[in-house]
Amino acid sequence: MNEITLYLNMLNHGVVWALLVIATFCYSKQLQLLFFMNKSEMWFSKSNYWLTALKTLLASLPLLGLLGTISGLLGTFKHMSIHNGLDMQEMVSGGIASAMFTTQLGLVLVVPGLLLQALLDKTLKLWRVEFLCAQ
C-alpha cells in the first residue's frame, strides 16, 4: 500500500502533468496525420506544417523530465535542511526515487513519439514521390 501512495504522490507534480499533456497531444496529432486523414495535398501541407513543431515538443519531454528531477532533488535537500537530516537514509532514498520518476517518464514517453515521427516523415517522403510520379 505504501508504494501505491508513493506513486500517487508523484502525480501531484506539475511536471508530470506537463509531460503527460505534451505526449498525449503529440501522439494524437501524429496518429491523426498518419491514420485518420486522407492523403492529399492538404494532408501533405498540414503534415509538413506540424512536422517541426512536433519534433520540438517531443524534444522537450526529456528536458521536462530533467527539470522535474532537479526540482524533486531541491525539495529533498530543502526538507533535509529543515528537519536537520533526521532519518536521512529513508528521506533521501524516497526523495531521490520520487525525483527520478520524472526523468524516467520523460524518456519513456519520448520513444513512441519519435517512432511515430519517423513513420510520419517516411510516409511524407513516400507520398511526395508517388505524387510527383503521378503527375
Rank of each mutant, 00 (worst) to 15 (best):
H79S: 15
Q135E: 13
Q135G: 10
K78D: 14
F131H: 01
E90F: 04
G72T: 10
I4G: 02
E90A: 11
F44W: 00
Y49L: 01
T123K: 07
N48W: 00
E3H: 11
L107S: 12
W127A: 01
V15G: 11
Y49R: 02
F25Q: 12
L124G: 06
C26T: 04
L19P: 00
Q104S: 06
E90R: 06
G106A: 09
K55R: 09
M37L: 09
L57N: 01
L119M: 03
M10D: 07
K125N: 06
Q89S: 14
A18V: 09
F101C: 05
L73D: 15
M37G: 02
L20F: 01
Q117F: 09
M42G: 12
T76I: 14
V92E: 03
L54C: 03
I22Q: 07
M80F: 11
C133K: 03
P62E: 07
T103Q: 08
K46D: 08
Q135N: 09
F36T: 01
S45H: 09
V111D: 07
F101R: 03
S98I: 14
S47R: 01
L119Q: 04
W127C: 02
Q30L: 12
F131N: 00
V110C: 02
L74Q: 15
I82W: 03
Y7I: 13
K29F: 10
N48Y: 00
M80Y: 04
E90M: 10
L64I: 13
S98D: 06
V129E: 09
Q32C: 11
S60E: 08
G106I: 07
L67N: 13
K29I: 04
L74S: 15
Y7V: 13
G95M: 05
V129A: 11
Q30A: 13
N2E: 07
S71G: 15
G72D: 13
L124R: 00
I22Y: 12
W50Y: 05
D121M: 10
L58P: 01
Q135P: 12
L114M: 05
L31E: 08
Q30C: 11
L66P: 13
M80K: 05
